[in-house]
Every structure is written in C-alpha cells, then in structure tokens.
Design a protein around this nucleic acid. Sequence first.
DNA 1: AAGTGGCT
DNA 2: GGAT
Length: 215
Amino acid sequence: MNFDLFSGEPQQQRQEILPGAFLLRGFALPFENELLQDIQGVIAEAPPRNMVTPGGLPMSVATTSCGDAGWVSDAYGYRYSKRDALSRKNWPAMPCSFFDLARNAATTAGYKNFSPDSALINIYKVGAKMSLHQDKNERDFSQPIVSVSLGLPATFLLGGLRREDKTIRVQLVHGDVVVWGGAARLFFHSILPIKVGVHPLLGKQRINLTFRKAL
DNA sequence: AAGTGGCT
DNA sequence: GGAT
C-alpha cells in the first residue's frame, strides 16, 4: 500500500471521475510483482496476437486472454470464445492474483462480489491505440468493468452512452485501476496512441488487463 | 455485421 | 461523425 509519509495513514486514492466510474490511483502497485509474473505465464501459453476487426483491419493492440472465456474479433464479429483459435485449447486459467486484484478493486469502487470470468490482456506498443468503443459483448451489464494499467502511461478517454457524447480524459500510469459500472457500464471509451517512452519494468510497452463477467 | 479503424 |  501507499502510505502518507507524514501521517502514516493510507492515502485515499479513489476518485469518482464520472457517475459510476472510479479511478483507483496506484491500486495495483501492491500486486505488481505477482501480476507481472502471472502475465508472463499466460502469454507463454496463449501468445498475444493482433486480431482482425470484422471490417478486415488489424488492431494495433495485441491481445490475449485468460479465464473461462476470451474476447475475440475476426471476420465473423466480436464475441467471447471459450477457446483460443491459435491453440484450439481453452484459454489459460485466470491466475488468483488477477481475480483477487479485480475483485478488490471493484469492491473499493462500490461494486461488491464482482466475479470476473474473463481477463483480456492488451499489449500496446508505442503508437498503438484503441478507438472509441463500448464493452457490450458481455451477457450481464450489472457487473462492472475493471481495467488495470501497467507499463507506459496512456491517455484514457471516457464519454457517455452515445459515441458523440463529450469525453473526459484521464492520464493513466503504471498501477492505476479504473472501474466502471452502474450508469457508466456502457460508456464509450478509448485509449489515445501510446507516446514514445521506456518504462523501468516493462520497457517500450503498455499492458492493460481488463476484467469482465462475460458469460 | 462491425466505428475495438482510418481518413479528413 | 468527431476530435486532433
């Protein structure tokens, strides 16, 4: 945990950035070592790949998953799949460190008993981005989304229910967690192109973990 | 099927 | 279609 050097009290790092959406600054830092180790394990079993959108264009972000389902995109559309098309096996199991972090973060944001069954791992090289979209391939929108930022910083845009709604922008750095649910669950969001840089632990990349109850 | 992308 |  982060402690205030003067008071010795844990600093409150929770900020409601829009109704239902919370920024938990540095929340993942205590889990850092275990998370990085477990990410390596998942990637060894299910290598990240640049999925193709239904429109036929490759995404700039490389993606893999773990848990009971993984988010996939191909010519047939966006969906969750229980199997990795590359290995034709089930996705790797979700590491306990992933589940615990996601559940704790959701609780801290006021979403009790979050039980993610899918963790999407998005690898951003410098210049990679994620266009404005909604997370809407899940079955149950009563469960929040938990997003963990590692490595290089990113600018996160969060809007509303309509694509054309005004967006706020939030700088996300290594260890930050964003949780959105309730009224914000279907809000459009995006990541601007990652700027040139080198992170001391992760080098020239940003890794994002996104947790969902997909099934 | 696709605006999770690329163009202006 | 809008932001950059």
